Amino acid sequence: MSLVFNQHKKSNQTMDFIKILGYNIRYIKFDRPESKKTIVLLHGLGASAERWSELWPLLTKYNVVIPDLIGFGYSEKPLIEYTVEFFIRSLEEFFKEMQIHKPIIIGSSFGGQLALEYSLTHKDFFEKIILVSPAGTLEKPTYVLSQYIFSGLYPTTENVHRAFEMMANNKEYVVDLATVKDYVNRMRLPNAKYSLISTLLAMRKDQSLRKRLAEIDIPTLVIWGRNDTTIPVENIEYFKQMPNGKTLIMEECGHTPYVEKPFEFYEIIEKFIDS
């Protein structure tokens, strides 16, 4: 049964589950009948739809769909091999079942990598692409990324809080304790650690993305936090080969600028979306 409540008189927020490839996938959806544009938000490794909770109140001009990727959040976590191809098939089925056509995709970290991979196999599906510190170009994990993975395998409040602080890399940023508790609870769900490790192995196997970025001709905006130590800002250079791409660095931000500076982030993406 879906949970629906009004955000304002012209918008409904829905949280529900849908069967995708035989598995239960959770999603959050904002319907705005007056809007002709749909935004899909893809979270990063180990995260959930709630990672976008600082941003979604600002997206009042658009229809918004935010899935928990299969294996993460509160979606089902089957004991299977998690491959990039499997994630692509699950997204393909999700878009089909949700009747999503020509969306604007915003992908953070691993979600950004999936947006790119999907675009390579479905070349005209997205209207525009927005990437936030996308994964797929690192040759080996950074120290901060390793600490984040450690916090997923050993999800105590202390470990998770420390990892989130390091990922923000901004002394003025205060980690939300509710976010920490939610992460701890999710990583203690059955098969959560398995899906994390299996996905990490899939990401390590997939080393061809850097060479294929030039094939993506869809209007793309790549945003990076200047102080990102999870996937360092130097990786933005790889994305300058995209023929229809723009790059932008947000100052005083770590790995998730849409969490640390949501209003500034929204102003940037709104200009790109509406241009």
Results as ranks from 00 to 15, higher is better:
Leu177Asp: 04
Ala163Glu: 00
Val160Tyr: 00
Ala168His: 00
Arg204His: 09
Ile218Trp: 10
Phe150His: 14
Lys211Gly: 00
Ala178Pro: 09
Glu172Met: 12
Gln207Gly: 02
Asp182Trp: 14
Val174Ser: 08
Asp176Ser: 06
Ile223Tyr: 02
Pro219Phe: 08
Thr156Lys: 06
Ala192Cys: 10
Glu158Arg: 12
Lys205Phe: 09
Leu209Arg: 11
Tyr154Ser: 10
Arg212Asn: 08
Asn159His: 11
Val222Glu: 08
Asn170Asp: 12
Tyr173Ile: 13
Val175Leu: 02
Leu177Arg: 07
Pro190Asn: 01
Thr179His: 03
Glu165Thr: 13
Glu158Trp: 04
Ala202Pro: 15
Ala214Thr: 11
Lys193His: 05
Asn227His: 11
Ala214Tyr: 12
Lys211Pro: 15
Asn159Leu: 12
Arg212Glu: 12
Leu153Trp: 01
Gly152Lys: 15
Val160Phe: 00
Val222Phe: 15
Met167Phe: 03
Phe164Ser: 10
Gln147Pro: 07
Glu165His: 03
Tyr194Lys: 10
Gln207Ala: 14
Tyr148Ser: 05
Val184Ile: 12
Leu196Asn: 11
His161Asn: 04
Leu213Asp: 00
Asp182Pro: 15
Leu213Tyr: 03
Val184Leu: 06
Gly152Met: 15
Ser208Arg: 08
Leu213Ile: 14
Thr220Cys: 11
Met167Leu: 04
Asn227Leu: 13
Lys181Val: 09
Ser151Leu: 14
Pro155Trp: 13
Asp217Arg: 15
Leu209Thr: 04
His161Trp: 05
Leu221Thr: 08
Leu153Ile: 05
Asp228Asn: 14
Arg210Asn: 13
Lys181Ile: 09
Lys205Gly: 01
Asp217Val: 15
Ala168Gln: 03
Gly152Ile: 10
Val174Gly: 04
Tyr194Glu: 00
Leu221Glu: 03
Ala202Tyr: 12
Ser195Lys: 14
Val160Asn: 00
Ala178Gly: 10
Leu153Ala: 01
Pro190Cys: 02
Phe150Met: 15
Leu153Asn: 01
Thr199Asn: 03
Leu200Trp: 13
Val175Trp: 09
Arg226Tyr: 07
Pro219Gln: 12
Asn185Trp: 06
Tyr183Ala: 09
Leu209Asn: 03
His161Pro: 00
Phe164Gly: 00
Gly225Arg: 11
Leu189Asn: 09
Pro219Trp: 14
Val222Asp: 06
Glu172His: 08
Lys211Ile: 10
Ser208Val: 07
